[in-house]
Design a protein around this nucleic acid. Sequence first.
DNA 1: TCTGGGGTCCTAGGACCC
DNA 2: TCTGGGGTCCTAGGACCC
Length: 443
Amino acid sequence: MLNFDYQKEPLRDILFLDVKSFYATVECAARDLDPLTTMLVVMSTTDNTGKGLILASSPMAKAKLGISNVTRANHLPKHPDLLQVPPRMNLYIQENKKFNALLKEYVAEEDHLIYSIDESLIDVTDSMKLFFPDTGLSRSEKRQRFAQRIQEEAKEKLGLVLSVGIGDNPLLAKLALDNGAKHSPIFQAQWRYGDIPETVWRIPHMQDFWGIGSSMEKNFYRLGIDSIYQLAHTDSELLYQRFGIMGQQHYYHANGIDRTRLSEAAPIAKEKSYGNSQVLPKNYTQAREIEVVLGEMAEQVAARIRRHGCLTQCVSLFIGGAMGEKNGFSHQMKIPATDNTKKLKAYCLFLFRKYYKGQVVRHIGVSYSRLLFTQSRQLSLFQSPEENEAEEHLDQVIDRIREKYGFTAIIHATSKLAGARSIARSHLVAGHNGGAQGGLDGL
DNA sequence: TCTGGGGTCCTAGGACCC
DNA sequence: TCTGGGGTCCTAGGACCC
């Protein structure tokens, strides 16, 4: 039984594209290996745990050895032909730019949304008329041809294999991608409003549905809901009472409803926050040691916001305790807009000293939000303009030297202290090895 | 089984104002 | 003086995604 009149829902031609085994494919291409027949895994081994995490595996490694992206390095099957390579995040960022440039040949800027480093979605409703003028093909066939054309071009020009979810709206395209295209022989699946009973409602596990994780799955079980079909047929008022607007959202999604218009979706918003976090290689018990790491992180994130040309007005600190302990905390404070390292470091330390109660620490995070993307600075009332300029100048000089010669070109004496982390982490991009392409620490 | 890292969004509850 | 009531802003924490 249908709950909605789908005739009244927006009908767009959406393609949700995913680069298959992106990192692994790039690594194969860089070695002149066939990404479809080579067994290769990209393994991140930061020194935190010494164990490493599989970030990506080639299709053959998945098929023959059963490796998935949640496999831990210590459970990696041994096989003489299995290549293990470290990540090169900077290289992947370059390849991602090429991929998105290719998509721009097919759609206008506003009809393209970058979803992640290996996923993009495009609204081809308008450009389909251009690329596939009236040829007697049905709308569904045109979409498939369109998707195929992009798949072929990506393969030919960039050596990338794409999975494409096709849908009447972005949600259906995403669900088709995750639950259909990735397992299809041609790496395509199309889900339309009329297919919802046979597709959306038959997704076998609730967690395979976009937006439902383990926690919501349990919540739904408790209400006796154990399938997307049931969710779609639960009283939306009840869901609203129990779970607020998220509950209602799940109800709409379970019915395949998504009224997002890509070109009207928020003007590709700038980042709302920049942050770094790390699990420490061991438990830290000395406040002094923790403060050294915290200072380093405060500084690195400060350099990041400067590189992006913005000021922060809110500093957040996260402290996670040792495993099994629930004594971590997170606190934030509003501050006058700044990108000044010395000040930001002081705010972070202030937060830490205010709330730290001597517990064992294993996880630290620093993030700056309420960003102001502007060139103009607000001068502090309590600091002379000259003093301010001098510090700013120093920060810029340090940033430039680091961009040119790497993070370790200039370091604080404290970074040589026991427990310091910045030297070990200087080559990381999004927490993983950046490779040889330069040492910027963020995306 | 056991700590990856970088993000976003939502909610409840408290503070404060009129 | 005796718990109004509406509104806004802020914070901590949870949940989810790639």
